[in-house]
Nucleic acid binder design. Structure first.
Length: 867
RNA sequence: GGGCGGUUAGCUCAGUUGGUAGAGCACCGGCUUUACACGCCGGGUGUCGCAGGUUCGAGUCCUGCACCGCCCACCA
């Protein structure tokens, strides 16, 4: 029997308004969600929270998926696990960099020393001020702190049961320290390395990008059919008598970068040419014709031009066929100056080549293409007209122009040699839903190279290395200088390596800092280590790692999820978490992903204020793991109605609690048995991360409880049939109320806490999750679930008949119920309640199926329904 | 090109191991029932994407196809 362990205090007219503010204040005051670090790993349930990007704004999709995590966290907390639920802010990376530049009117110049007295002007100046990287980071911290306050306010209002003393930022000290230390350890073990190699390059951001950040976009282009002269004239094979071989390309501007032609080894058309040279049009460079199985005889003319570099296939061919490099593009995407005729640029006519090439210098790829086409037409080397096509082109996901491939020095983390281990980890991980595993497998199987983690940007975690500068002023990349781990985090643009003085920076026989920063994912791939205090607090780390849950969206499986698995494999040789719960997107009614602009039109806060946090959470809870869910204010209204119903039903249950005693009435016992079944079902579903199925059953059961059980038990509860049956009803009502409040608590934290406070001390969110066994015990001997089920069935039939006959609920009636022996035996146990609820006099009749007939009676009903 | 998911009432979605199609919303009718009009009672609505197959029986299993969405792919 639940105790009203404090005097019951019921509001006259309970309402949902203001519950968010009221309870957030109490939860904060009482430390309701504070993590108790004295608990051991087995008792802990730890969550690797996704840090939202702070430079944008939170949208409805965030509210959606973060609610899912919170439901799971609250459930686990009530199950007795100590929940480690931190919150991170992703303020590291390009988006913040751009925002800070515009907001303060500054530009980062990593060559400048730190200026501790620097203050940005009131208004951003027209001419941006150059500041050092540490100054820049200070400004980023200053601005993001403001944004993070707004985010935290929204999360609190939504009711996330986060421990707000445990926040971290991806640009914060802890994250930098962890990122740098992990990097240094990888470097020491040879799992991180530096390489000068062709790299995917964004010409606008002027930085390398990783495979995971690519996306294909359909772009208009054209096949250009171009002839190459066969060196040494016509001879043999298919090409007997031909002076030329024709290729097709979408990038004719790269002819000056051409290093070979390639065809499939089995392609009989081109076999005679293998081993021979051809001459590039316009530039007169002799290049070999090579054979390689990647060449597709079906594509174009079946023979392709290899340039350094037009696409990733070029890189493969270049590497596997050991071809030279002829680089023509600069980091900004424009053609560079170069002199023809020298080493590597041999041509049979240097003057002609120079004359053609000089017309391309400083042009973008698109403009150079038009110019080359013009030149090819003049020279007669373009065969026919270009054929327009649309084809997929690789872009940086945040970029506006196609990526180029440019040779540069970059840091990599080894991934290719761990591919099998990573696939195995993917199998070990428990995915929710299961099928999301395929995305991971797909990605790992498709990995094309090691992970490029360096970015030629400023606002990120710096690489904690310097290079010795030789006597002749060159950097000695082969022997990087690294700090001791205890010095971390460091910024090599201002900090000085051990054994050197600041005056030796960039001097002969001195040192130079690595200018690059790490990719955002190189830091956020370490969120379990950052949040769990890997280096700062090993004791804490041992209590929370490996974590239980990684919640995230499916679009970043290839980035965040994959890279976190990789880092944990490299660092700890184990999975970073046991479960991954993948949430879907919020889509608008046209099945399109909700755009940011749309999300901004309906701000999350406005939704929460209109429908209440519990209402919005209810809608979110209807989105199963992995399923895209339609934005639907209608569901939020339904959720709000449910919350209101909980207020009112609870008020009814608590309005009169005396006399209160053991549960003895068959209907009451049966109701509790059914509740026990619900608890069993909901618990199983929640353990399986199927919070949606659990909620829908809890909700269905609760509405039945309100509309059927409460109506059936009302007269008895008011004392119409004596104190004993009233005390059973009161006892059962309180048990049921307590159970429903706990079942709803993970979903509707505000209304359940409010009602809990009317009659119980402490927080419902720290109360134990209901146990089916306890309910069965209260129901006791002789309880049978079907009494409740049959009572609802018969009650429904009588209501329907009365409604169809146009009667009022209170119209007295004579009811004949026919049914088989079992049914009649069952209904006799609840005859009193069915009769009183319908003002009916009931007669039973042996029959086959349940059949109910209703006739109006002359006398006031009810009295004759006494047993 | 490869993979994954979806296609069930006007809308949003459930349909557990194959056994006569469900819920909510919306809509319509009725109800001042002392917890609740943010309520209560009742009502109609479906060739379960298409075509085959297995089975006594298929929304559910198998095969193929179509459409929608997403992921991946070396894109000359």
């Amino acid at each position: 029997m639940p105790d009203t362990d404090q005097p019951i205090s019921l509001p006259e007219k309970p309402a949902l308004e203001g519950l968010e503010a009221k309870w957030n204040a109490r939860w904060e005051e009482n430390g309701t969600y504070r993590f108790d670090r004295s608990r051991t790993r087995l008792d802990v349930y730890s969550v690797d929270t996704p840090p939202p990007t702070v430079s944008g704004s939170l949208h409805i999709g965030h509210v959606f998926s973060f609610t899912h995590t919170d439901i799971v966290a609250r459930f686990q907390r009530m199950r007795g696990r100590e929940v480690f639920y931190p919150m991170g802010w992703d303020d590291n990376g390009l988006p913040t960099e751009r925002r800070v530049q515009n907001y303060y009117g500054v530009r980062c110049d990593p060559s400048l020393p730190y200026d501790s007295s620097f203050q940005p002007p009131e208004k951003p100046p027209k001419q941006p001020i150059s500041v050092s990287r540490p100054n820049f980071i200070e400004l980023c911290n200053r601005l993001t702190v403001e944004d993070e306050k707004v985010f935290e306010q929204l999360w609190r209002y939504l009711g996330l049961s986060v421990d707000w003393t445990r926040t971290y930022a991806t640009i914060g000290r802890a994250a930098q320290r962890v990122s740098q230390a992990s990097f240094l350890r990888l470097l020491k073990r040879g799992a991180a390395y530096q390489l000068e190699a062709p790299t995917l390059w964004d010409i606008d951001f002027r930085t390398a990008v990783a495979q995971a950040e690519l996306e294909d976009r359909e772009q208009p282009g054209a096949y250009h059919r171009i002839r190459f002269e066969i060196a040494g004239g016509p001879e043999g094979g298919h090409y007997a008598g031909d002076r030329f071989v024709e290729i097709e390309t979408t990038r004719p501007e790269l002819i000056p970068a051409c290093v070979a032609l390639v065809a499939h080894p089995d392609d009989h058309r081109y076999r005679p040419l293998f081993g021979r040279d051809v001459v590039t049009p316009l530039f007169g460079v002799s290049v070999p014709v090579k054979a390689h199985p990647l060449a597709d005889p079906e594509k174009g003319s079946g023979i392709a031009m290899i340039c350094t570099f037009g696409d990733l296939t070029d890189v493969t061919w270049w590497r596997e066929l050991s071809l030279p490099v002829r680089a023509v593009l600069q980091p900004n995407g424009a053609f560079r100056h170069l002199t023809w005729g020298g080493a590597g640029w041999e041509t049979r006519d240097a003057a002609a080549a120079q004359g053609a090439y000089d017309q391309l210098v400083n042009l973008s790829a698109a403009k150079a293409r038009a110019k080359v086409v013009e030149l090819l037409q003049q020279s007669g080397d373009l065969i026919g007209e270009p054929k327009p096509i649309t084809h997929p082109v690789k872009f940086y996901e945040k970029g506006d122009r196609p990526l180029e491939i440019i040779t540069s020095r970059q840091w990599f983390i080894k991934t290719m040699e761990f591919r099998d281990a990573l696939l195995e980890r993917g199998r070990e991980l428990q995915w929710h839903p299961e099928y999301m595993r395929h995305r991971y497998d797909n990605w790992v199987n498709g990995l094309a190279g090691d992970w490029c983690i360096s970015r030629q940007r400023f606002f990120g975690v710096p690489f904690p290395v310097w290079y010795p500068v030789t006597a002749d002023g060159n950097r000695d990349y082969a022997h990087p200088l690294v700090p001791d781990e205890s010095r971390l985090p460091i910024d090599p643009s201002t900090d000085v390596p051990d054994g050197y003085t600041a005056s030796q920076r960039d001097q002969p026989n001195g040192f130079a800092g690595d200018p690059d920063v790490m990719d955002t994912w190189a830091t956020s791939s370490l969120t379990p280590q950052v949040a769990g205090g890997w280096l700062e607090d090993p004791d804490l780390f041992s209590r929370v790692f490996p974590m239980d849950l990684r919640p995230q969206a499916h679009d970043i499986i290839r980035t965040w999820l994959f890279s976190t698995v990789l880092r944990a494999e490299l660092e700890h040789q184990q999975l970073p978490w046991a479960h991954a719960a993948i949430s879907g997107f919020v889509v608008d009614p046209d099945r399109k992903k909700m755009s940011k602009s749309k999300g901004n039109v309906i701000t999350p806060m406005a939704l929460l204020e209109e429908h209440g946090s519990d209402g919005v959470r209810y809608w979110a809870a209807n989105g199963r793991p992995g399923a895209d869910t339609t934005f639907d204010p209608g569901q939020m209204k339904v959720g709000r109605r449910l919350a209101t119903k909980i207020l009112n039903a609870s008020r009814f249950a608590l309005l009169q609690t005396e006399p209160k005693g053991d549960v003895t009435a068959p209907l009451d016992k049966a109701m509790l048995l059914n509740l026990a079944r619900l608890v069993t079902f909901a618990t199983r579903k929640l353990e399986e991360y199927d919070y949606t199925s659990a909620l829908s059953e809890i909700e269905k059961s609760f509405w039945n409880f309100c509309d059927d059980y409460i109506e059936l038990v009302k007269a008895r509860r008011y004392g119409d049939f004596g104190a004993d049956s009233a005390s059973s009803a009161n006892g059962a009502l309180l048990v049921a109320l307590e159970t429903y409040l706990r079942l709803f608590a993970p979903y509707l934290p505000f209304v359940t806490e409010e009602v809990w406070s009317w009659w119980r001390s402490g927080s419902v969110h720290r109360a134990p999750w209901p146990a089916a066994g306890a309910l069965e015990q209260i129901a006791g001997e002789g309880a049978e679930a079907r009494f409740y089920v049959d009572a609802q069935l018969a009650n429904g039939e009588i209501r329907r008949e009365k409604s169809l006959q146009g009667m009022k609920i209170k119209t007295p009636v004579n009811v004949t119920i026919a049914g088989d022996t079992d049914m009649l035996n069952s209904l006799r146990m609840v005859q009193l309640e069915i009769g009183s609820a319908n003002t009916a006099t009931i007669v039973f009749q042996q029959g086959e199926a349940l059949q109910v007939s209703v006739l109006p009676s002359e006398e006031p009903g009810g009295s004759e329904s006494h047993p």
